[in-house]
């Protein structure tokens, strides 16, 4: 059982992977406790925000307006707080690098999910020690954060603090624009949620990814040098991945 929480990726003695090194699949703890807490609480909050937000927008009447305002505002405040902690976590652990877009293999990955997966092709990307996300995931999350996320945050905060700027002459028009952006971005987020939930079922078996986001353990391709490094650090042999053996 290896816990990569204990790995210092920048240690001078950490093994450096060369392109031709052979790898094997090992099942190790890859998603840290905080990361899983972040993922699932964020999932819950985003779903709540979508549900209450579309209620406020008048698309359904399942909640009284006042309750929807309370829940939407409350969820937004909790989510903002969560993000403050998460950003702190990213930078103190170096995890932000996971989101750094990499264009290697991107087209192969798109082809795989569009077509290859239907034909039982093997995955073109395997998780590595320093790279939990495939390039498509990384670019999706970065795009989501920069376009949809930032729009939602900026417009949402402006919306929430309307009373601090409503006395300006332009407030009436700008408010309409802000509401428009907020709604448009919310639709974008809704589309992401649909696709994201589906993509979570593309593991083998179908619940594999969901399970690994709960248990934190997943299959990672390791070189012999990395295995030796990890085993030395933990003092016992690594589990090889059941999927491959």
């Amino acid at each position: 059982m290896t816990d990569i929480r204990n790995l210092d990726l920048d240690r001078p003695d950490a093994p450096v992977r060369k392109p031709k090194d052979k790898t094997r699949s090992y099942r190790i703890a890859i998603y840290k406790g905080y990361e899983r807490f972040w993922h699932w609480s964020q999932a819950f909050l985003i779903l709540s925000l979508l549900f209450t937000g579309f209620g406020l927008h008048g698309l359904h009447n399942l909640l009284p307006f006042g309750m929807a305002v309370t829940l939407h505002t409350g969820a937004a405040i909790v989510l903002m707080t969560l993000w403050v902690f998460t950003i702190f976590w990213w930078f103190t652990t170096g995890e932000w690098k996971q989101f750094f877009p990499k264009n290697e293999n991107l087209w192969n990955i798109i082809k795989y999910y569009a077509w290859g997966i239907l034909q039982g092709a093997s995955k073109p990307y395997h998780k590595r020690l320093h790279s939990k996300q495939n390039p498509l995931q990384a670019i999706t999350y970065v795009a989501l954060t920069f376009f949809i996320g930032s729009t939602l945050w900026a417009s949402g905060i402006a919306y929430l603090f309307y009373n601090m700027w409503e006395h300006y002459g332009w407030a009436n028009q700008v408010f309409t624009v802000i509401v428009f952006l907020h709604t448009a971005a919310a639709w974008g987020m809704a589309i992401f949620v649909v696709i994201h939930v589906y993509m979570a079922t593309t593991g083998e078996p179908w619940y594999h990814y969901i399970q690994s986001m709960i248990t934190g353990r997943d299959d990672v391709e390791l070189t012999d040098a990395e295995v030796a490094f990890l085993e030395e650090r933990q003092g016992e042999p690594l589990d090889t991945s059941p999927a491959k053996h």
Binding site: L56, H57, G58, L59, F65, N172, F175, T176, V179, F180, T183, A184, A186, W187, A190
Partner: peptide, 17 residues
């Protein structure tokens, strides 16, 4: 003359969404 949440909508944006 103003956007009232819950009453007003952007019809085509919602259809598109």
């Amino acid at each position: 003359g103003f956007y009232l949440p819950g009453r007003d909508k952007f019809k085509w944006l919602d259809i598109l969404g």
